[in-house]
Design a protein around this nucleic acid. Structure first.
Lengths: 337, 337
DNA sequence: CGCGCAATGTCTTTGATGGTCATAGGCAGC
DNA sequence: GCTGCCTATGACCATCAAAGACATTGCGCG
């Protein structure tokens, strides 16, 4: 089935069929109807390779994803894919390894598939050593701020990491907690961790709480095991700890397991809060107090900004979307006792 | 950068460059070395659109996935992607909605991208109403047996669902449980649910336990909420229940939440077991007794069988891989008390 | 000298697009 | 009724990047 077959079958010329497919106005309604009928009858779809070859690219969005098993990313990704499709930008997903370099992969994808824009997913270990600006197509980091903003083509959409972290510390303080441990990412390569730490620090300072990173900050990976190990580290380094703020819900689950394995109850002995707002956290015991990242909003803003950059090329845009605080049962109120 | 530029730059003709790229032996070592040098210098990658246009298809594998947030699928998918890439079959992922029809989507993908094979992911709601055999390329269902095996091009790889379910019932019986509830998928559209139910029934019969589906089987979706609702249903319909077998770990988490919300303890009042063997289950309290689906093995067999079908066209292959039983802390031993 | 073979160059093909140009038909104006 | 113009359409061709069929070159050897 090619455009030629449609032409023969409908009795029109190839050019006219092409005009119909591409919504060129110079076609009579009769011809359009007749050709559309044939196209639909055969369920014809123009060969995308030929089309993209001629059009010098796929007119689509590449999504480069680090970390398949990250539930938050998965749901943002799904939503973003749907939005791209709706907007007429077919999307392709490329999963990459934790230790792959996204820039070289992006370069390769650009040479091979020539997308019109790239969306990067992967919160904790983005590693932009190469220079994205040489790609000269719009790029956008999802849930990850561009660490260095030299790149004029690199936009970002993140939740208000710093505000959320600050809010969380204030909340723990209000509940009477004074010695709070943090479990986050390795700061060097993780922007969200940096922003959240900044938010925590601003609260600590404002509230007059001392903070010693070496004792109170466990740097690890955003995984169950990372949360577990981070918690073990804090138990050693931070005596008198009454609350722990894990930078992801999954880490919080790991941390809770570690506490229980050390004979401590949550929240009676140690309170634990998370970040992300996964549906799962509502089903755990205790239900986890956490920050919800607005998945749909993040996806929607990310896709819209990227497409806007593709079509208008306005330079980099950095957007921060609001968080939602979910108070549940994993924090003990020390002021009551 | 095109093959022409490489030709000009290296002083050879495009044909020779093409031969070098495609490992055609009719090239002198000198020419090969010279051309490779230029290719590497410019980091050249042939345009995939032109290549696939000429080659009448992408020589790749399409992966059609239903359900982004399914952790088990996500890990199989990641592994399968890596394996395809290694085997020289570039893979593209297409996420589809829960209520999309996979066959019509598959048809569309075939027309548009002409893959050499299709891998279907999505355990509980596969809905093959159309006829896949008309696609006339090899297809394979991952973790889902082809319900009707008319289709000569439709292979499958599943864990030993029935054996695993049977084993689980035997285990619960050995621990003294006699009234066991099941939470599974809607049987009509879910093959794994059917096979697992068959396994359960064979054990029930062998052990002389009565089973009334209407009272003991809650049909729902493979989600947290599904598990929750399924459990609530069982609490009403099945008095005297001492154990619940949820057909996925995620459902088990939902079921545990429901039990607790009804004032019941796990495993003291009701035992709960799951299926899948997610890493998460090791971190929950209680640690969940479950069946591990061998993710790497499933991915590896699925990809190998599909590629074998593509290259040799041997007809449909149905493979069942062994499960692993993970005994942990979510089952009470009633024989001790 | 001419045959054979390996190495290499040339040209066509792939499916769709879009441009140019020709043309047919309709319609308005004179 | 003829002209001129406009629209719809057909016909044709180049283009895109690569692949591969086919043609050609050049060398060694009998």
């Amino acid at each position: 089935m090619t455009i030629k077959d449609i032409a023969r079958e409908s009795g029109y010329a190839v050019g006219t069929v092409s005009r119909v497919i591409n919504n060129n106005p110079n076609v009579s309604d009769a011809a359009r109807a007749r050709i559309m009928e044939v196209i639909e009858r055969y369920n014809f779809q123009p060969n995308s390779n030929a089309k993209h070859l001629k059009q010098q690219g796929s007119h689509g969005v590449a999504m480069i994803v680090k970390g398949t098993s990250n539930l938050l990313l998965a749901s943002i990704l799904e939503r973003a894919q749907a939005l791209c499709d709706e907007a007429g930008y077919p999307s392709s997903i490329y999963y990459i390894d934790e230790d792959d370099n996204e820039v070289s992969r992006a370069r390769q994808i650009c040479r091979e598939h020539k997308p019109n824009g790239i969306l990067f997913f992967g919160s904790d270990t983005h590693n932009f050593e190469g220079d994205l600006s040489e790609l000269d197509i719009p790029c956008l980091l999802m849930t990850n701020m561009a660490a260095d903003s030299r790149a004029a083509n690199l936009s970002s959409v993140t939740v208000d990491d710093s505000g959320a972290a600050s809010r969380m510390i204030d909340y723990l303080y209000a509940k009477g907690h004074r010695t709070i441990g943090l479990i986050g990412g390795v700061l060097r390569c993780s922007h969200p961790s940096g922003a959240r730490l900044a938010g925590c620090l601003s609260s600590f300072t404002r509230l007059g709480l001392p903070f010693e990173a070496a004792r109170q900050y466990a740097a690890t990976r955003y995984t169950l095991e990372g949360g577990y190990r981070g918690m073990e580290q804090l138990l050693k380094s931070c005596p008198g700890l009454t609350a722990v703020f894990a930078y992801s819900d999954i880490m919080a689950v790991g941390a809770i397991r570690a506490l229980r394995d050390h004979g401590l109850r949550v929240p009676e002995d140690v309170s634990v809060v998370g970040f992300d707002g996964l549906e799962l956290t509502e089903y755990l015991s205790p239900r986890l107090t956490t920050i919800r990242q607005p998945v749909d909003r993040l996806a929607e803003r990310g896709v819209n900004i990227l497409i806007h950059c593709i079509e208008q090329n306005p330079g980099a845009v950095h957007e921060i979307v609001p968080f939602e605080f979910l108070e549940r049962d994993s924090v003990r109120d020390l002021t009551q006792s």
